[in-house]
Design a protein around this nucleic acid. Structure first.
Lengths: 233, 233
DNA sequence: AAATCGTAAATCGCCGACGATTTACGATTG
DNA sequence: CAATCGTAAATCGTCGGCGATTTACGATTT
């Protein structure tokens, strides 16, 4: 009756995706994804307490997977666990936010430094396409679209270095930074200014100038740092 | 009878350390520390399988804390968990090792870039003291001592930036890099050469030259990368 | 003898429960 | 009435156990 009867999986079964999705994914991973999603959508805000029992019953699982998920999230910086008091969504202070921006700047700049000498024409074209898309969103004052493409622009550039650890670390820092409040003070004017910086970054990469690319990319992120979290804090 | 009877803890009780050590530390944390220690000392080697039940009984705990510890270690990159097969000490390939070295280079170089303008004379003196200590160890061909002070040199320099997230991320990458085999091919000659680079790094910092400090510090780590894991892999 | 198969042991994922700690809140006292 | 105290509820940390999956290994077949 069951699918395990005939093990003729030589041709990858078309409808096996749903089963695989549950076969090689533990409840712990599912719970972790759910918590990450809740944090990103804002259902869980920084400082919020994560009720183990409530979350467990809400997801129809026991507390074990929830606890394991929280331990993983703790190491990735999204959650703070206090002994005998529970797990809380991490609160990012101004100081931490500045530090995280600087980490982003260091990695992003280094990525440009590494990418500039080896970047291909196709990659430049891909980056320019993203830049153009942001230009359109900027003209429409579509903040959400701009923000999404902006993330993709950075991620794409990072991926072009071929250093996946670099890309993973960068996106981890970005995710942590989401926990810092009041980042939505992006005026429409800032979008065009920011995208102008993107254009100059692409130019530096296309010119195969590592030092120029680095300084522009680093400045790009450090400017965002000073804009989002003022130094006078 | 118990110590909870008299709560006059206004003066911090002298013998309370042992109890605190157990009061605000869960078994999960203790197990995680134990696994980290086993990995660092080599009792657990890269690729080794972590038997949950065996480790639990050996430490006198149940499997719960062991599982939670492994989930934390997984996110910090020291452990790889495979569903329905268990936890394994992470294996770092040549590619990953090179990527991690590059991450170290990016962070170390950026630290120098940030530190150079603001470094104090006392900090320079502290770094020079570590350099001198390494010079002595180098003369005695004392590899272990040199290696230890070298780690301290890097950590101290990172700490001087005041960016603790930077320092934490850096030490995390260093710990991950420990999982890469054959890193002990350090000849006595390399110690003196490496320490000469340290001296030039300190000089650049003392001269308050951010770009020079960065390029020297970045090159310092990238040289180590090419020495430990050749590009022709 | 090599390969295949089937069964038993080992191990993992998950659950429910119990004691310990923390928190909430009303009673008591000055 | 404010502050303190004590008790009850809520929550966390930990444990042992059960079914499901994987692995080990001997029997069977070619």
């Amino acid at each position: 009756m069951t699918a395990t009867e005939t093990a003729t999986d030589a041709p990858p079964h078309p409808a096996a995706a749903a089963l695989r999705e549950r076969r090689d994914v533990s409840l712990t991973i599912l719970v972790r994804r759910e918590i990450e999603r809740s944090i990103e959508t804002g259902e869980l805000k920084a400082g919020d307490w994560i009720n183990e029992a409530l979350l467990a019953s809400r997801l129809g699982v026991s507390r074990g997977p929830v606890r394991e998920a929280c331990r993983g999230l703790e190491q990735s910086g999204l959650v703070k666990v206090v002994v005998n008091r529970g797990a809380f969504v991490r609160e990012i202070g101004a100081q931490d936010a500045r530090h995280l921006y600087e980490l982003r700047a260091a990695l992003f700049g280094f990525a440009g430094f590494q990418l500039a000498p080896i970047v291909t024409d196709d990659q430049i074209a891909a980056l320019r396409a993203l830049h153009d898309a942001m230009e359109t969103a900027s003209a429409d004052t579509d903040l959400d679209t701009y923000y999404g493409i902006n993330l993709k622009f950075h991620a794409t550039l990072l991926a072009f270095t071929g250093n996946d650890r670099l890309a993973a670390a960068y996106s981890g820092f970005v995710r942590e930074l989401h926990l810092f409040r009041r980042r939505a003070l992006v005026s429409p004017g800032r979008m065009t200014a920011s995208n102008a910086e993107h254009a100059r970054i692409i130019d530096a990469l296309a010119a195969h100038d590592p030092d120029l690319a680095r300084s522009r990319m680093e400045a790009h992120v450090l400017d965002a740092r000073d804009r989002v979290v003022p130094p006078t804090t």
